[in-house]
Design a protein around this nucleic acid. Sequence first.
DNA 1: ATGGATGCAAAGCGTTTGCATACAG
DNA 2: CTGTATGCAAACGCTTTGCATCCAT
Lengths: 171, 171
Amino acid sequence: MSDLAFNEIARPAVAVSPVEKFREFLGTRGKRLTQERETIVREIFADHEHFDSDQIVARLTQTRRDGGRVSRATIYRTLSSLEEAGLIRKVARANDREVYEHDYGYPQHDHFICEKCNQLVEFRNDEISAVLVRVAADHGFRMSGHRLEVHGICAACAKPPTRRHHKLDMI
Amino acid sequence: MSDLAFNEIARPAVAVSPVEKFREFLGTRGKRLTQERETIVREIFADHEHFDSDQIVARLTQTRRDGGRVSRATIYRTLSSLEEAGLIRKVARANDREVYEHDYGYPQHDHFICEKCNQLVEFRNDEISAVLVRVAADHGFRMSGHRLEVHGICAACAKPPTRRHHKLDMI
DNA sequence: ATGGATGCAAAGCGTTTGCATACAG
DNA sequence: CTGTATGCAAACGCTTTGCATCCAT
């Protein structure tokens, strides 16, 4: 099964593929879906991992089997558009870098950020949103979304005193 | 009443002044409380407003009545120390800048961030912490703190269609 | 055809750092 | 005295931008 098939068909719980969704968005702004933009969207939606600009740059800036090389500038420009389009969003800040994740086709959730291994772990909890809706209303604040980072030590790093976490992953 | 008096005496609900607290912290690290560091702490704790590096730099980099000029480099170095010391913490990111606030002598709270005027508004809600404590426990996560930004439009910007907010404050 | 998009390299911007000098303990 | 800290300016790392060329529509 090719990447294309995966992206176009096996996407989770959404009627339109991310690429199509992006094309629509671009259309409404008199912008175009170029090959570069499509390459970037496919790369990002190939899995459901968190990512930052650097990782995408690293993957797409090299010469690729499919010939889809994209320049650093275009990647930055496209990440902004994807955020405007509501396809991705900034979820946290780890290692002084902004971390993105898909905001299309996946349910609302928040994150734990481990201070030792810097790993992001997702968790879902509906009470939080419920409380926020209420609190916002109380303050006359028209909430559009939120960003919640829970800091601490993850289960893996907390348990064993000696293990292959700690320093290695802090780089 | 001088600034000194305010900082040393009229601080809210804490036994030791921020400056003293910082001196203690520095002591445990073999570091010193210099005049520059003291100037910075006083400036920051002179009120309870949120602030970012730039604002402090702007205020302390100029020649001052009290002669307490401090260099940009020292301000950055000191902000880091103050964060380590637990006197301040990063609460949000607005306008692509990290926003700090006091983390000493003030109760836990979170923030609304208005997308129009970029204003930060504090709110307190104990349910949130309670939920987080529980959720963290469920995941074996040892929580040390959290950062919650609620995005949207504040009451002031939401109401009147024409008013002196909107573009002016977006600078 | 033609206005938007890309790639490159240069410019920006906030933050960090090397080094000589100044000073707290 | 002695090791830290400061100030300055240069170095950094990420992101943005000007411009000539390219291409989706």
